[in-house]
């Protein structure tokens, strides 16, 4: 596949040699423009199910932008244009007949800064199930809330104060509350946009443990600035640079034996 390299001599985008068989998300020739700016250039990637995939790369490389394509959060930005094809379970998510609201119910998202709603802990988690009508009764809803908080590893800390405000929790607890909120609508995929960048090391460790536990039930994609984090939690890693997907593969392989010069330079800390 031939493409413009935009002044980067070795910018050959990575094309997977053979598509993974259990690919949950498949992206082909994805391009994103912010007005005049070409933010994502011909990205091709397969994301496996029941695994954690990490997107790494220097600031402004487009990894968050690409992440936000997968649940079409970029739709809320008027100047943003997405072209190419992204499929989830072989279904094109940019197909006009697709309901974006339902898509987002299947693709949960956790943000950089914890953003609990200014409501009680219970209401935060119950919000998603309520708007999607997932609970038939109050007991159902209680159960969903409890289960989600348990899966997010928060239940024991908050079970006595479910009616307190979610914004009163610590930063790490807030982020786990946001994860519980995302889990509550039982998505297939969870997107995490630098979920630990606003947290202290202990809270970060808890979230990382949690991600590892959640892996068995979800397809998780995490954007991170920390290469150690990518190495710790992910099975596959993709390295983005200047809007181009430079290299993608098994996390172990990327960190010990990268094929590309630029990947090696970034991982060893020569730039970024």
């Amino acid at each position: 596949m031939d493409m413009t390299t935009q002044g980067i001599p070795t910018a050959q985008p990575y094309v997977p040699a053979k598509p993974a068989t259990a690919a949950k998300v498949v992206a082909r020739n994805v391009n994103v423009h912010y007005g005049e700016k070409h933010a994502i250039k011909d990205v091709n990637v397969d994301v496996p199910d029941q695994a954690v995939m990490a997107f790494i790369g220097p600031s402004g490389c487009g990894k968050s932008t690409f992440l936000r394509c997968i649940n079409r959060m970029n739709d809320t930005i008027p100047i943003c244009r997405v072209s190419g094809k992204i499929e989830i379970d072989s279904r094109d998510i940019y197909d006009p007949s697709l309901d974006v609201v339902q898509l987002r119910a299947r693709v949960g998202m956790v943000f950089q800064k914890p953003n609990p709603f200014p409501k009680s802990i219970y209401e935060n988690v119950a919000y998603g199930p309520r708007i999607h009508g997932l609970a038939k009764s109050k007991t159902d809803l209680d159960e969903i809330v409890t289960m989600s908080l348990q899966k997010a590893g928060l239940f024991n800390e908050v079970k006595d104060r479910l009616n307190d405000s979610g914004t009163g929790l610590s930063g790490g607890q807030q982020q786990r509350l946001c994860i519980a909120r995302a889990i509550a609508v039982s998505p297939d995929i969870i997107l995490m946009d630098e979920p630990c960048s606003a947290l202290d090391p202990i809270a970060t460790a808890r979230i990382e443990e949690l991600i590892d536990e959640l892996r068995s039930n979800f397809c998780i994609i995490i954007v991170t600035h920390s290469m150690q984090q990518a190495a710790r939690v992910s099975q596959r890693t993709a390295f983005f640079h200047l809007g181009v997907l430079v290299e993608e593969g098994e996390t172990e392989a990327i960190f010990t034996n990268p094929r590309e010069e630029r990947t090696r330079d970034y991982i060893t800390g020569r730039f970024g």
Binding site: T76, G108, G128, I131
Partner: peptide
Amino acid sequence: QSLRDGAYALGATKSETIKKV
């Protein structure tokens, strides 16, 4: 904006986001 994003990411429509969040 982060509150709006949080609601949209859960699959809320615009009016649900406005009304509830």
